[in-house]
C-alpha cells in the first residue's frame, strides 16, 4: 500500500510540476487566442476550449476536487454569466438606438486585437460559456463515476 502511494506520487511529480507552470501559460494563451480572434485564427470557441484543456490537465495531475478548489465560484455559474455577457453585448447597440447585435466600435485598431467593440464582448461571453460547459460536464462526470 505504502509503496503504491509513493509510486503514484512519484509518477505524478513531473506531471504536477509541469501542470503548475502550464496552467497559467495555457490560460494566458487562451485569452490571447480570444482577443486576437477577430484578426487571426482564434476566437471564443477555441480560446474557451484551450482554457478548459488547461484545467483538465491540472485535474489529471492533482484531482478534480483540487482543481475545483481553485475556483471561487463553481464553473457552472460561468454558463449564465457568459450567456448574459453575450446577450448584453447584443443589447448594447439597442441602447444606442441601433438594431439588435449591430457592431459597435469603441476604438480604432488597437495592436493585435484590432478594433475593440461589441463583437469582442460577445466572443468573451462565448468563451465563458464554453469553459463553463466543458468544465461542468467533465467535473460532474469525474465526480460521479
Amino acid at each position: 500500500m505504502e509503496r503504491n502511494r509513493n509510486n503514484e506520487k512519484l509518477d505524478k511529480t513531473i506531471l504536477r510540476t509541469s501542470a503548475n507552470y502550464l496552467l497559467p501559460l495555457l490560460i494566458l494563451f487562451s485569452i490571447f487566442l480570444l482577443i486576437r480572434g477577430h484578426y487571426l485564427p482564434g476566437g471564443g470557441f477555441i480560446g474557451g476550449l484551450i482554457a478548459s484543456i488547461a484545467f483538465v490537465l491540472h485535474s489529471f495531475a492533482y484531482s478534480p476536487m483540487q482543481t475545483l478548489r481553485m475556483f471561487s465560484i463553481k464553473p457552472f455559474f460561468l454558463i449564465p454569466t457568459g450567456l448574459l455577457v453575450s446577450f448584453l453585448s447584443g443589447l448594447l447597440p439597442v441602447v444606442l438606438g441601433r438594431s439588435f447585435m449591430t457592431g459597435v466600435w469603441f476604438a480604432e485598431s488597437v495592436v493585435v486585437i484590432g478594433a475593440f467593440g461589441s463583437a469582442l464582448l460577445f466572443d468573451l461571453g462565448v468563451y465563458m460559456v464554453v469553459v463553463g460547459v466543458v468544465l461542468t460536464i467533465l467535473f460532474t462526470i469525474s465526480e460521479n463515476t
Binding site: 478594433a115 463583437a119 466572443d123
Partner: peptide
C-alpha cells in the same frame, strides 16, 4: 463593415 480580418470569426 465588421472591422475583422478573420472571416470565419467575423
Amino acid at each position: 463593415m465588421a472591422k475583422g480580418k478573420n472571416v470565419v470569426n467575423v
